[in-house]
Amino acid sequence: MSEPTHELERLISRHLDDEATADERRELNAHLRRDPAAAALFQEYADLDREVQGALRSALGRSPFRCVPPWQRTVRVLALAAAACVAVMFWSLPGRERTAPARQGTAQAGSWFAPLPAAGDTLVKRPARFDRPEIRFTRPRTDWVVIPSDTPGEFLVIEVSHVPTRTVRVHKDF
């Protein structure tokens, strides 16, 4: 490989690694402006670097982004706090039964806690009295789905835990 190309590759490499000095950056920029082939080479190395970095971080269990900036952490904390407030708000809605429905023994038919019909009974489909919007809270490890029942102030909360998985290659060992 010719000496000028080697020097150009060294400058590109230093630039991509954030190691280039101000002089080296100026020199590289001047070179790229006057030589389209050099600019193409720079672009090729930059693309390669970006793709390989993403592939390596993804394959070895690293996030494509090195770390979460502080402002993102703050936003996440605020979002979680807001989700918690909404959950508390649902929990303390006026009209919500304070005693457990099972103890009352007379849970209404529209309640999530109404007893199941005895075997042999016929299930009659009845239209919901109002739309049941679904509210979903999503976190990396758990989802919560909140569905209001026909009984005002009563909600079905479904917690879905994400099961962490990993692939393990199994080898035959005789």
Binding site: M1, H6, E9, R10, I12, S13, R14, D17, E19, Q43, E44, Y45, D47, L48, D49, E51, V52
Partner: peptide
């Protein structure tokens, strides 16, 4: 370290010539 990184990049580029989308 610098030399090895330059050579690593060059080798990768040669191996993947024309294969990375731009």
């Amino acid at each position: 370290v610098e030399t090895r990184l330059v050579r690593a990049r060059r080798l990768l580029r040669e191996m993947l010539e024309g294969k990375v989308d731009r």
